[in-house]
Design a protein around this nucleic acid. Structure first.
Lengths: 145, 145
DNA sequence: TAGATATGTCAATATAACTGACCCAAAACA
DNA sequence: TGTTTTGGGTCAGTTATATTGACATATCTA
């Protein structure tokens, strides 16, 4: 590994530490709202992915979350009981269940997003477009997208 | 809130989703190593912060981790028993306990870092210095540093 | 010396994950 | 057509990490 100035170990260690803080802060912002609905961060992550990828199947969601189906099922069950989401049989393959938000779920998502948006918005508002693009590209590379 | 092209809601939602992936991937890389030592991610985070801020006190660590002292104490106890860290009484104020890695802890940290470094290094190796600086600055703003 | 502070600890509980074993229905295949 | 594979669901038990609340102790500060 080359040892460019901006790739020194200390710099990399800083990034690793800051990625932790960034995740924790970003995902703790909407906790009061989730509590209001008796949901936790696991429900939050599911709701969020469903909103971004409506109609995704259970296994799509499993692949994104990388948890076990037993674990996901608890979360989906809670969301279904609370009428936040609904599952429809796939038209092509009726084994596949596609997941959608319904009105209540959409409202919940909006409340969650309102809280989270502030932090990201404030971080980006004074940044130039180039910074945002570069931030995005590095983030993508970190997750191998 | 202005609605600049790069600050559209969809863009912000993408960032929120990607911050989750970035954290999860970065922190799941060293799990096999941790398992070898019978440690978990909680121990990982503590070890890592201690390495970056040697001599920090228990309450410094609490403030960084933002968990309860009961929770942290389990982690510190495990690390002490395994001789990964040691606590020394503060010289000025002997109530304060300063935390240090000892040899075993330093070795553990190096193993953990070796795994995590790959991901970050690969993400940054082809980026120009400017990109890295911009990435860092936005990350800092997200965590209000 | 009377608080306040830093830390540690006991006990109970919650949340989110795990492993492992099964089950069913629908699709794919031979 | 019959068999196998796939997508999904579920029961049961366990682990990891966090929580709340109460209390203990030593040390520092006013």
């Amino acid at each position: 590994m080359k040892d460019l100035l901006y790739l020194k170990d200390d710099q990399i260690k800083d990034f690793i530490e800051q990625i932790f803080y960034a995740y924790r802060e970003t995902y703790s912002d909407p906790k009061k709202i989730l509590k209001k609905y008796s949901f936790g961060t696991a429900h939050h992550r599911a709701i969020q992915l469903i909103e971004r990828h409506e109609g995704l199947t259970v296994s799509d969601l499993l692949n994104k979350l990388k948890i076990t189906k037993q674990s996901l099922n608890r979360v989906l069950r809670d969301l279904i009981i609370n009428k936040a989401i609904l599952l429809k049989k796939g038209e092509v393959d009726s084994r596949r269940r596609q997941i959608f938000l319904n009105e209540k779920g959409r409202k919940l998502f909006e409340e969650i997003f309102f809280e989270q948006k502030k932090r990201i918005y404030n971080a980006l508002k004074n940044a130039d477009a180039d910074s945002v693009v570069k931030f995005k590209n590095i983030l993508k590379k970190i997750i191998n997208e």
